[in-house]
Structure formats: C-alpha cells, structure tokens
Design a protein around this nucleic acid. Structure first.
Length: 428
RNA sequence: GUGGCUAUAGCUCAGUUGGUUAGAGUGCCAGGUUGUGGCCCUGGAGGUCGAGGGUUCAAGUCCCUCUAGCCACCCCA
C-alpha cells in the first residue's frame, strides 16, 4: 500500500494489546504502592549529557543506541533510553531532596533505543520501574527484587528465574578487573576479535561471551564474588538472606554483568523461559551507589529495577478491553433519528456507555452491528415508538424485548444490566 | 552494527519449468427479510503481487538495490 508507514521498530498499540499493557502496568503500580512507592514522571527527552555521564560513554546504549538531536536553541537532547538517571536528576532538582530518606518512587513510560528491532525488542518500548534513593542497607535491594517478584505473581506469570550477582564496588571492582585481565592476557592473541574488543573497553563484558563460555574458559575465569571486599561480601550475603526470608528463589549467576556503567554491588535480572533466547530478560536492575556523583550531584546511594512492559505483557493473559459499551441506541429508518441522538446523549450523561447507530441503514444491519459490538441491550426508536413516546428495549442474549415509556427509562436499563450480570455469573 | 530467512486482498495463505483479464478462505458492504442480530443463500467492493531498477517477446515467478518483519549474533527491557 502506498502511504507513510510507521518508523522501524515502533508499533501501534491496538485496543487488545493496549489493554494488556495497561493491566500489566496497573498491577505494577499497585504492588509498588503497597510497598510505599509513589509514582513520578520525568520528561521523555533530557540533556544528552545526562545519559552520557550517567549510563557511561563506552556503553552500547550511549555509543550507538541513542536518539540524539539538536533543538532549535542548539542544545543536544536525547530521547530517554532508560529511567534511572532521570529519576536521580529529578530527585536533586525537586523538593523530593528535602524528604526523609530513603525516597521510594516508581515511574513508567516510553523509552527509546536505536537498536535492531526483533520480537520483544522495539525502538520505542515501555518500562515500569522503581527506585529507592538514599539507602545503602542491602535489605532494600531485596525489597526491590521482592516487589518485582510479587508483581509477576499477581499477574499469574510463572516460568521465570531470578539471576543474581554482585559486581563489587569502587574498592574491590578494580582488583577484580585486574585479575580478569591477567587471566586473559596470555591468550589474548587467540581470542575472537569481539572478546578482545570487550577486554579493551569494558573487561567485565567478556563474561557475556558465548564463544568463551562454550570453550569452558569462563568457568576457569576469576569470579566477582571471590574478589569482593568484606563490605560487599557482607552486603551480598544479606541480600540473599533477605530474599530467603521473602521466600523468593534465586540463582547466583557469576556471569551476570549488565550493560550500564553505573551498577555496583547487587545486579539482577529476571528471565523467562518462553521468550526468545536473546530477549528473555523481563527486567533488570541493581544498585547504583556511584551514579549521583557521576551526574555531578552529592553522593546518594540507590537501587532499583526497570521492566519491559511489552515483554511482560507478551507472556501474560489477554485482558478484557475496558470501556466497551453495554447499550446501543438504534434508530429505525425511515423514522427521524433526532430522538435517538437525544436519548443516547441522555443515557451517557446518566453514566452509561452508549453506542449510537442513527445512520441510514436498516434495523437489520444495526442489530447485527450491535450484536457484534458486544452490547447487551439495544434500544430501538422507530416510527411507532416515536408516535407512542416509547422505546423498545431488546435483550440481545435472550432475544426478548419490551416496550417502555421514553421518560425514565434509565432505571429499567440499569435493572436489566445488573440482572444480566447475575444471570451470566449464575450460568458460568 | 554483522549474517541468514521472508514479503501476494484488512487477516491467514495458494499461485506449476517465467506464458493471457492474480485466486481461495476469512473479514468488510449490500440484498434475500422496505422494523429485528449469531445460521444459510446471492451479489459487491477491496491488489500499483513491499518499493525501485534490470534480464526477457513475456516477470507475482529470475537477478540487483532499498525498505520492513522474523531468526541468530551484539546487547538489553
């Protein structure tokens, strides 16, 4: 077809998928609220610098996945690729900074990454996430993970696994990094180009390597948890203990590193077995105690996660579309349709969801349309009704109908709608 | 960003070794029933065969480029 098609990697959210996405998000917001998290929203675009400094100059997100553009004032702006750096920025720029710590917030909205699209991967996608700012006790790490877990439970999603690791902090990570480099140094020449590149730019990333894992090389490579300083070690233990107290199963994954630079200590992802191998991460998160300083603010510890709503929605049950009309008002040609227009308006103002079909097509077509629209009652206004100042109410399910005076018909409609509900419940 | 597979009606798909006006099912619209819906019957609309170029007497079919989707990398949500 000729015409303009949507940009690559974007999607139109039609009623059913949209309803699913909204229900997934609503459940997340509810669980977050139950944990004392308040929802905020940050702008969809930010200063490019926020992400360059926050996410890290060498990361894939910054080097090749950002939608960056100059505005008319010459500022460099970027469509947000993630939500954590903006939340930290918003904290410092708002009265939130005066509130007692820790501050717990949730957020949701579209994110943008110029990635190659695939199933479950979009250039514009939606995230729901939470952040705890100003608390370094490891129990909140477990709280955040627990919140995510309860969310999935509420949605009835199973087949997930929690992957957990500790990346160390500013004190012990350099030691580990050196040990990793030392381990690979002797065989540098024999390594695939991609892995040499990783070792050069971001050594921890080699732990992601597929080839090296297949070679068994990674099994012998140094593990982060063997190099943790005593504080990080103790914190990691406490996270695990708290997760056990919550009854949440997890797997310690020594190769989990995560792509953004700001993570320290706790890192985690939740995977789902049914999603495509490459896109199996439902959400990911961790602790980012150094992020605030990277952005030029005072030190502020933090921990959080972000979930991909599309991916969660993909594996959740279909959701009923909200706001489907329950009543249709039909004019019956050749009768004048003004009365039908007026009746529909009256019912809507009385709080009913009303579909109006006042066109020229015959009653047969209109009833057919009403049927397929899923309404439970059809109100027919034809010549005989207009003469008698009545309306015919037809119950779609039973194919029975009655004639009532036009005035005060709302009460009978409500009565029928609620009794129809009872009938449906009784039947099922 | 790399490699591979794919692209025909709104949707799911046929379309022979290149050979006349490109089909089916479903959906949509209308009629059968001029005021009564789910089934049935009849008819209709809807395609520049993803886009552009090339080979050929002739291209939906073969070749090239582009675009888009999917898969595997990469990486993440």
């Amino acid at each position: 077809m000729a015409g303009i098609s949507r940009p690559r990697g974007t999607e139109d959210l039609l009623p059913e998928p949209l309803a699913r996405l909204k229900r997934v998000l609503a459940a997340g917001l509810q669980v977050a609220a139950a944990h004392g998290y308040r929802q905020i929203e940050t702008p969809i675009f930010e200063s490019t610098d926020l992400f360059v400094r926050g996410v890290g100059e060498a990361t894939d997100v910054v080097t090749r996945e950002m939608y960056t553009f100059p505005d008319r004032g010459g500022r460099s702006l970027t469509l947000r690729p993630e939500g954590t750096a903006p939340v930290v920025r918003a904290f410092w720029e708002s009265p939130l900074r005066q509130e007692p710590l820790p501050v717990r917030v949730s957020y949701a909205g579209p994110m943008f990454r110029y990635d190659r699209p695939g199933k479950g991967r979009y250039r514009q996608f939606h995230q729901f996430g939470v952040e705890v700012l100003g608390e370094s006790e490891p129990e909140v790490d477990a709280e955040v993970i627990g919140l995510a877990w309860r969310w999935l439970e509420r949605l009835g999603i199973s087949g997930t696994s929690l992957q957990l690791n500790s990346l160390g902090d500013r004190e012990c990570r350099p030691t580990y990094r050196a040990a990793l480099l030392e381990f690979f140094e002797p065989q540098m020449a024999a390594l695939p180009e991609l892995d040499r590149e990783r070792l050069r730019r971001n050594p921890l990333r080699v732990l992601d390597s597929k080839e090296l894992a297949d070679d068994g090389l990674l099994d012998r490579a140094p593990r982060t948890i063997d190099y943790l300083c005593s504080e990080c070690r103790a914190a990691f233990d406490r996270v695990q203990e708290a997760l056990s107290a919550l009854g949440i199963p997890f797997a310690v994954n020594h190769r989990l590193v995560r792509g953004l630079d700001y993570y320290a200590r706790t890192a985690f992802e939740v995977w789902h077995q049914e999603l495509a191998g490459a896109q199996n991460a439902l959400f990911g998160g961790g602790r980012y105690d150094g992020l605030s300083e990277l952005l030029g603010y005072p030190p502020l510890p933090g921990v959080g996660f972000a979930a991909g709503l599309e991916r969660v929605a993909m594996i959740s049950a279909p959701a009923p579309e909200p706001g489907r009309p329950e009543v249709a008002v039909l004019s019956a040609p050749p009768a004048d349709s003004k009365a039908a227009v007026a009746l529909a308006d009256r019912l809507r103002r009385a709080g009913l969801s009303v579909l109006l079909d006042a066109g020229a097509r015959g009653l047969r077509g209109k009833l057919s349309f009403a049927e397929r629209s899923g309404v439970r009652l059809a109100l027919i206004l034809g010549e005989s009704e207009l003469r008698a100042r009545t309306v015919t109410i037809r119950r779609m399910a039973g194919r029975t109908q009655e004639s009532l005076p036009l005035e005060g018909v709302e009460g009978r409609i409500r009565e029928l709608l609620s009794s129809a509900e009872l009938a449906e419940e009784g039947a099922s």
